[in-house]
Design a protein around this nucleic acid. Structure first.
Lengths: 211, 211
DNA sequence: TAGATTGTTAATCGATTAACAATC
DNA sequence: TAGATTGTTAATCGATTAACAATC
């Protein structure tokens, strides 16, 4: 249903709409206008209507949007109802936190394997999944065909491992390593999460307040 | 030295420049032109020159930029040489991962306290800092005047706690909760990190590849 | 019907890119 | 000096906002 080329700016706002609609739904709100939603979210009504109309006319003139319907439409647009297979590489603190903390099921994924090269971590139970030795990663991919990989490994390992995973048909990366994956590959979806960059930005903005 | 109003787009690119310059420095590169750096980073030379010139003329015609000098300038612009006091609220998996994983010192911060309301976690050592009971948070703020708070707590707790912290002079938030802090406060720096939104975006983009 | 609110086009704004004179 | 590359202005592009006819 997507009209082909929707800008990344619009796509990045969809999960936020989804969150607010989920809350509205939970609070029992049946319908909402772009004006009311814009006030809640701190953006313009125009933008909301423009964004939603990239995917179809979900509202009704004179009425607004049905909260439940719009919530489900956005779930569908994002593909959150899918169950794509994800593997997690790196079972250090960050990797374990993500495995335990993130609700994969409600974001279109199922975590099917966790890998680490550190023998101390191999065998450890992380949220019901036993950490496997990275040596078996390639064979695991051959047998299970994961769709995406979550990289919580060092820069050098990320660069090396990404190439191998792509050979085995991985279509997306959720990348927490310091290596900017996007630069080397086309036709692969990459979300680089640079927590350090985010903290550095906060540093700048806190300093800015004082001037 | 900042010329007042630099756009958030530019600011968000600075940490990335900083990372690439750090690597160049480590590899022994003495100078680099905007053209060479743009090729490495996957953006235009024009953009690099425009971005840097928001803060001053750091280059030299016919030569380019001195890597070490530029790296230090960006460190200074971001304020990474500062040591602002940060407190972490929520010592669950995510909170502990951040406390252990993040190099605060090289991003302008020092972690001076960790708090949780769960008695099971109170007293636990996390990277050399003992988790304190949240009941003592307000008194701690009165005595130690932290600059920023890292929120790894649930939505409702985040909303409630933020108001109190601002009363005690907190100037910034690194917010991992699902609550969008930005909406309610002015004059406070907020970095909302919505990992769930990032994963949802990845879901969309992986699906998009198949169409 | 009258009022409300959408979907959509047009206007504005800001960010990115291109061009080039200045100059090391 | 000649070549290279910046700093900066002007042109382009895209994203956001405003306006309003369509219509529930």
């Amino acid at each position: 249903m997507a009209k082909g080329n929707v800008s990344i700016s619009v796509i990045r706002r969809l999960p936020r709409y989804h969150r607010f609609l989920k809350d509205l739904l939970a609070s029992g709100t049946v319908r909402i206008s772009s004006g009311d939603l814009s006030a809640k979210m701190g953006l313009t009504a125009s933008q909301i209507r423009q964004d939603l109309n990239c995917f179809g006319g979900f509202g009704q003139q004179g009425y607004g949007y049905n909260v439940k319907d719009l919530y489900e439409q956005i779930s569908r647009i994002l593909g959150l109802d899918k169950h794509r297979k994800a593997i997690l590489l790196g079972a250090g603190n960050l990797g374990r936190a993500i495995a335990l903390h993130m609700d994969f099921a409600s974001r279109g994924f199922t975590l099917i394997g966790i890998f680490d090269s550190n023998p101390v971590l191999v065998g450890m139970d992380v949220g019901g999944i036993a950490v496997q030795n990275s040596a078996g990663l390639e064979e695991f991919c051959r047998q299970n065909h994961p769709d995406v990989a979550i990289l919580c490994i060092p820069k050098e390992a990320a660069q090396r491992t990404a190439a191998m995973l792509i050979q085995h048909g991985i279509r997306g990366f959720w990348n927490f390593s310091h290596y900017d994956l996007t630069l080397d590959y086309d036709g692969i979806a990459v979300e680089n999460v640079h927590l350090g960059d985010s903290l550095s930005t906060l540093c700048f903005r806190v300093n800015e307040l004082e001037q």
